[in-house]
Amino acid sequence: MHKPSLQSILIGLIPFVAMCFTVVLWDQVHPFVLGLPFNIFWIILWILITPIIMSFAYRSERARIDAQDSGMKGGA
C-alpha cells in the first residue's frame, strides 16, 4: 500500500485552511466582488483554486509512486 507523503498532505491542508478554519475572517457581505457578497465570492473562488492546488499534490504523489514501483524501495 502506498501511504501519502507529508508533502502532499501539507498541500491538501491549504484548501481546508482557506474554506473552513478561517471562516471568521471572510464571513462578511462587504465588499461585493463581481456582484457577489464577499463570503460567497470567497467560497466560489476556492472551488476553482482547489483543483489547481490538488494537481500539485497529484504530481508529487505520482512521481513518488512511480519511483517506488520501479524498484527504488525505501526512497519514500
Binding site: 501519502p4 498532505i9 491538501g12 476556492w46 482547489t50
Partner: peptide, 12 residues
Amino acid sequence: AYLTLAYVFSFY
C-alpha cells in the same frame, strides 16, 4: 465548502 473539501480529503 464540505463538498469541495470531501474530495480533497479523499485523495489521502
